[in-house]
């Protein structure tokens, strides 16, 4: 069991000692719903930190933001950032270190083990409530959620509303940390790729129909990209909206900018965008599910990444984010990599 008091105490201690410039963690949701990220700078505020299955966000994105902000500052505070991470989030940190975007010393990691649980899927809760508006969610004893609606309170076991990614999680405890809270409990995952199983078993036509319907919905708001801790490029190759133009950028460079996809949210361009995103996340996505959670039109984006996660595991014995000293999936190979698809 993760003792919340211990987490708060450790956060307080490192802030007091000035070991970190601030601590990024979770606090009670503003509308009494799921937890909300919080930046704590003062030791006395650490009591606001919470940990329960409503802590759905991957806070590593804030590390990326902080790093990018730092690079623009003249005299940045170079002390590490304290960050609360779950198992999946910790792997995001590993990938960032692997890609030399951050140094290990840039972060002080307060790792939380999900133990036998994980985090909830808000959509699954909504389904349980058959459309009734949630007024309040509280995490209660014995791993239950107490959800209040206008019709009163309802007790929902957390297990019934766990996010799919948690049900498929291979390592529900941090793989890199400075302090670990909770146990590294073993948990058998029978079907680590359950969510893509159905799509995989379908005919190409069915698969296409499914993705066509899904990707037609995309409005290209780029929420998936904005929330993704791995999408830290200054300029996305998929579009030139945020092209990094500096004083040195020549007119020729601007003209050379390739429009791999058009900006219009036409199906072909949406597919182009999501294909590029998926392939660029191959061997880098740690399945925190934030892209899917952020998507305003409910595209099951996780599945694309999960498919490549599975390919990496099954074809190349590569699991993302477990070892930052190893070369990346696509910048390495083995002599015995499969080639039965090659003629």
């Amino acid at each position: 069991m993760v003792e919340m008091e211990q987490l708060q105490k450790e956060a307080k201690e490192i802030l007091k000692q000035g070991k970190v410039k601030f601590v990024i963690g979770y606090s009670k949701g503003s509308q009494n719903l799921t937890a909300t990220p919080v930046f704590i700078k003062k030791p006395e505020h650490t009591s606001r930190l919470i940990w329960d299955p409503t802590c759905v966000q991957n806070l590593v994105k804030f590390i990326v933001d902080d790093k990018q902000k730092q690079s623009r500052e003249k005299k940045p505070d170079e002390r590490p950032v304290g960050i609360v991470v779950k198992g999946c989030d910790s792997r995001a940190i590993n990938v960032l270190i692997q890609e030399k975007f951050i140094d290990r010393d840039d972060v002080y990691i307060l790792g939380l083990s999900c133990e036998e649980l994980g985090v909830v899927d808000e959509k699954k809760i909504a389904q349980k409530l058959e459309g009734k508006k949630i007024e309040k969610i509280e995490f209660a004893k014995k791993n239950n959620l107490i959800v209040s609606t206008k019709d009163g309170e309802k007790k929902i076991p957390v297990k019934d509303v766990l996010a799919d990614r948690c049900l498929e999680c291979k390592a529900h405890f941090p793989v890199i940390y400075d302090q670990l809270f909770g146990e590294e409990t073993e948990r058998e995952v029978k079907e680590p790729y359950k969510s893509i199983k159905k799509t995989e078993s379908q005919s190409p036509k069915k698969r296409w129909d499914f993705w066509k319907e899904q990707l037609e919905k995309c409005i290209r708001c780029y929420a998936c990209r904005s929330i993704c801790p791995m999408c830290y490029c200054d300029e996305c190759v998929a579009d030139s909206i945020n092209m990094a133009v500096t004083a040195e950028t020549t007119a020729e460079e601007k003209a050379q900018k390739i429009k791999w996809i058009e900006r219009s949210p036409a199906l072909s361009e949406n597919i182009g965008y999501h294909l590029i995103r998926a392939i660029h996340l191959a061997g880098r996505c740690i399945d925190c599910g934030e892209c899917e959670r952020a998507c305003p039109v409910d595209i099951p984006l996780r599945l694309l990444n999960k498919k490549l996660e599975k390919a990496a595991h099954e074809l190349f014995d590569y699991d993302v984010g477990f070892d930052h000293k190893k070369p990346s999936l696509i910048s390495s190979f083995k002599d015995e990599d499969p080639e039965d698809f090659i003629r």
């Binding site: 597919i271 392939i279 498919k307 090659i342």
Partner: peptide, 12 residues
């Protein structure tokens, strides 16, 4: 290319 192939197959 193996990864690209997996992805293209997956979207149908």
């Amino acid at each position: 290319i193996a990864l690209v192939k997996e992805l293209l197959d997956f979207i149908g």
